[in-house]
Design a protein around this nucleic acid. Structure first.
Lengths: 181, 181
DNA sequence: CCTGAATATGCTGGACCGACATATGTCGCC
DNA sequence: GGCGACATATGTCGGTCCAGCATATTCAGG
């Protein structure tokens, strides 16, 4: 799923600036299942405007740069619907933390434990984000409720596993270090 | 975590060709938590060899191109350990399927259901891969066992949610279409 | 016998990210 | 009151990375 399509998707929820779209991928509902950065959002919006998929309205502000509000046109909506019809590529996960944990035997035990604790904290944060942020906001369509519930189910399982296995893992690390010494 | 580091990590499990490393990211143990493609693996291995982090031994084969077997040097092992010490970046998930499901109200119900069923099948496949493939193979260190268990826990939760909620989701989609009509 | 998959390396065009540049407002803190 | 940190907002740029293609051969299945 390329960035132009993702921008169209973000705009389907209402008109927004490039900055707003970025935020949707950082904190908002999109954060949990896709990524996009400024470096690709702004060029994508420009091309989308050129091709007539979105309209741009400059909103003057004093001090700050103008907010350039983008809104979907009918052509844009059609293009989004078309893109949504394509067969989805398989999910991609990129987790530095799991790589590090996989090779925990190559680093000091305390470092590995720190990574694990950070990973647990991260997942707890994600879970609370889903619980408050979005539940109050927008879960109107069946699709949105379904995806929201999926996120909660997966994060809860992750937190549970991390909590339950943490101490056993730390013990095993300590045993291994004792064996070497 | 950049591709050179990921190559070093793959080689920590034993000498391998570029093709072998690719397979480790496609089917092997690494598939579940990171990605890397030919287009970045081969250049990375070349640079790694130039900087002395790996050695290369050509293994002649008739018919096929030579297998170029790469093995970690001490410098390479040090470099890997160093990279593993860096603070991990937060996990990144990219899921086309969840984007499509989020906007299920914009596409035909049958298409959405097909995506959902495909997503469920995909997760079942991943789970069985973890269950047989790796459990028999290499789960020697605490880290490897821990990461393996984490994967199983998360995939199981995903499959369970998808199975339990599928029918209710399909019904809601049908209700919505009835409302429009 | 032919098609497709697997083995194996490598290139290239284009997409994409991370970091930076720019300019100002605001809020807490000492 | 002033200072740093952070938020708002757009945009560029270097470099990384991926998907798809090219190449060449073997082997299994139809």
């Amino acid at each position: 799923m390329d960035v132009p399509t993702l921008c169209l998707a973000a705009l389907a929820r209402g008109p927004a600036s490039g900055y707003d779209i970025r935020k949707a991928f950082e904190d908002g509902p999109f954060a949990h299942f896709h990524e996009a950065s400024f470096g690709s959002i702004y060029p994508a919006l420009r091309r989308l405007a050129e091709s007539g998929a979105v309209t741009v309205t400059a909103e003057t502000q004093d001090g700050r740069p103008d907010r350039r509000i983008h809104a979907l046109t009918d052509a844009g909506r059609r293009r989004l619907r078309q893109a949504l019809l394509a067969a989805p590529k398989p999910d991609q996960l990129r987790s530095d933390a799991l790589v590090i944990l996989f090779f925990a035997h190559l680093i000091p035990a305390e470092t590995a434990v720190a990574v694990l604790d950070g990973y647990l904290a991260h997942h707890r944060r994600l879970l609370s984000q889903l619980d408050c942020d979005e539940l109050g906001a927008e879960c109107e369509t069946p699709g949105q409720r379904f995806v929201h519930g999926f996120g909660v189910a997966v994060y809860e399982a992750a937190v549970r596993y991390l909590e339950n296995q943490r101490d056993a893992f730390v013990d095993q690390l300590a045993d291994d270090e004792a064996k070497i010494a």
